[in-house]
Amino acid sequence: MCKNMPPLELAIQFHGHICPGLLIGVRAAELAQKQLEVGQDSDEELVAIVENDNCSVDAIQSILGCTFGKGNLVFKDYGKNVYTIISRDSGRALRIAQKFGSTAGPASERFRELGGKPILTDEEAGEKETLIGEIFEKIMSMPAEDLFAWQEVVVELPQRASIRKTVRCDSCGEGVMETRASSRDGQILCPECQLK
């Protein structure tokens, strides 16, 4: 692609489709970039602590570059749309929390209802398309203050991801990260083989 991809498009391409959760993540990522005056992470200058594992986190990964693979995405399983973005360069951290009920409404309810159906009629598919358009405009047009509460916080900087040695499991023969292997009866075992 010879044109720079806008953040929203980055998120959609990464996630595969447009949905309300992804759009919440897009708004959170863009808010973090604006408030912290940062762009996209290259090599762990940014860290994201996310308190859910829903669609929004794919926007955080694709737009901010805080990814599972790089190790600068920290997941806390709290089930909350809360994102703390840390800039190692400036030492600043921003905690962004979605306001309760900020995107609620009949359109969201009906969209969720249709999303729970295993198969849709042509009419329902058309209705779902209309609903996502309405929700899309609402989320992307809403003032950030109505969608989120945010504040700068002090957090302990997570360690940078480190590369560990790979050792061979004496039971299955596969490679396993040294820090995940353990020794039993003189054998080095991967976590899977330890359970056998």
Binding site: D122, A125, G126, E129, T130, G133
Partner: peptide, 8 residues
């Protein structure tokens, strides 16, 4: 690619 029969 709209799934609507008429203009949305």
């Amino acid at each position: 690619g709209t799934q609507q029969k008429d203009y949305p």
